[in-house]
Simulated assay, not measured.
Amino acid sequence: MSAQSPRYRRILLKLSGEALMGGDAYGINRQTIAGIVSEIKAIVDLGVQVGVVIGGGNIFRGVAPAARGMDRAQADYMGMLATVMNGLALHDAMRSAGMASRVQSALNIEQVVEPYIRAKAIRYLEQGRTVIFSGGTGNPFFTTDTAAALRGAEIGAEIVLKATKVD
Rank of each mutant, 00 (worst) to 15 (best):
I33F: 01
N139M: 09
I40S: 05
A34M: 03
I132Q: 01
P140S: 08
R102N: 00
T130H: 03
V44H: 10
S5L: 12
V131N: 05
F142Q: 11
N58C: 06
S101M: 03
A89R: 05
N108D: 13
N86L: 07
G135C: 07
S5R: 12
K162F: 15
F141R: 11
L12C: 03
Y77T: 00
F142I: 02
V166F: 11
I54V: 15
G51L: 07
G57N: 05
N86R: 06
L13S: 00
G51Y: 02
D71H: 10
R118T: 05
A75K: 09
I155E: 06
V84C: 03
G27N: 02
T130Y: 03
A64K: 10
V112F: 13
P140K: 06
A42L: 13
A100K: 15
D76W: 06
V84S: 01
S96V: 10
I43A: 14
S134M: 02
E154S: 05
V37G: 07
L107Q: 04
T32V: 03
G57F: 05
V112P: 07
L90D: 00
G79D: 05
V44T: 15
M1W: 12
I36L: 15
S16T: 02
I54M: 06
L81G: 03
Y124H: 15
A147N: 02
V53I: 08
G47M: 04
R9W: 08
G87Y: 01
L81M: 14
A64P: 00
G79W: 03
G51F: 01
A3C: 07
G156D: 11
V113T: 14
G79H: 02
S16A: 01
K120W: 12
R10A: 03
G156S: 11
M85C: 11
Q104K: 10
L46Q: 15
K162G: 05
Q104A: 09
A73E: 14
K41R: 15
I36H: 06
N86I: 07
R95S: 08
G22V: 06
A106W: 02
R102M: 02
D24C: 05
I117S: 05
E158G: 11
G156T: 07
